[in-house]
Design a protein around this nucleic acid. Structure first.
Lengths: 183, 183
DNA sequence: TGATATAATATGACCAGTCATATATAGGAT
DNA sequence: ATCCTATATATGACTGGTCATATTATATCA
């Protein structure tokens, strides 16, 4: 599970509430690890149970108390251990390809429409990527060390490259379908 | 859920048992939609409940009866409907990137090792892709129409392109890490 | 002889994640 | 006047999928 370790990663920057964490995820790693609000709270409970974080309850009037989570030494150790561990391969599931595999039963027009819709989604994603740096900069209180920015940029670059590759594939596929005889 | 529709896709080629389906998945679409044996059986039950497939029980001695599933007209309609429906975007989760995002706390050597291990996995995957055509040809009783082969080839091409893009990213990242000052 | 593979279906426990909804108040927008 | 948003945490129902295991006979391999 990457979520628990991503949370440790953020708490290693600064103590945060579940609410803060949700915002942190949404403005930084969402593109490769979206986090559900309910799941964040459940995972925080689990992290506390394991002793990797502690809770500090900050009373508030008129709204729920803030539960500020702090990473512990054990948590920091676990974070480092995990960072150095080779990664589980990612889930290869690509719903579009399942359709493409069985697309022989479609007309050329239908198949092209399928790929065009996919390509449109990819183009939209590329535009989103272009907006990420501002969003993140806006949120990141103090932009962290150049080293951290370097690694953060790597993740963005990955997204751009992979999305471009998928887009090129889709565009070439569309061109090739036109040369296909419909059975 | 793509699994149920992939099953419909296979049953549209020919009636099959759950056991047959598992083999079909493993020799064709596994790379973009792996299927768990237990999940196949549960899904078949569900498809039957919805009237998209019917079951024909073929008695056998000495081993469990074969339950041969046949696609129905309703199932064929559902398959076509699904094929023409624009696709849900794929799950963007990439565990490696979560680590890279927080990799500022690693030494350059540790970060490089992480990416090298990842790159090794990608190279292995590329070699696997090279072996897919033979495997699939071996299994596909009658290689289906050229049109079907065309679409099947598209899915393989997607895998190769995306894996190559990821590999190039990793290799360039490794080169760049060496120019990074360790904080 | 004993282990493993093949054929075939099935269940139970579990896990990570999603979605809807609940609570409670303040402030701004339509 | 009403709706939406922000702040903040929490639970219950559900879903798709994984893993281990069970059954039962034959055949193969070391």
């Amino acid at each position: 599970m990457s979520l628990e370790h991503a949370i440790l990663g953020f708490l290693n920057y600064a103590p945060m509430t579940g609410y803060d964490l949700k915002k942190a995820f949404d403005t930084s790693v969402r593109h490769f690890w979206p986090a559900d609000q309910a799941q964040i709270y459940r995972t925080l409970k689990d992290l506390a149970r394991r002793g990797w974080v502690t809770v500090e309850v900050v009373p508030q009037e008129d709204r729920p108390n803030r539960k500020v989570y702090h990473i512990t030494d054990a948590g920091r150790e676990e974070l480092r251990r995990w960072l150095r561990t080779p990664t589980d391969p990612e889930d290869p599931r690509v719903p579009l390809l399942v359709k493409v595999f069985f697309a022989g039963g479609l007309t050329n027009e239908e198949a092209v429409a399928l790929l065009e819709a996919y390509a449109a989604g990819l183009r939209a994603r590329l535009e989103e990527y272009a907006r990420v740096p501002q969003q993140a900069a806006h949120y990141a209180e103090a932009i962290r060390s150049p080293r951290e920015v370097f690694f953060w940029t790597l993740t963005l670059d990955y997204g751009v490259r992979l999305t471009r590759a998928a887009l090129e594939w889709a565009e070439e596929a569309i061109r090739n379908i036109h040369n296909q005889e419909e059975s």
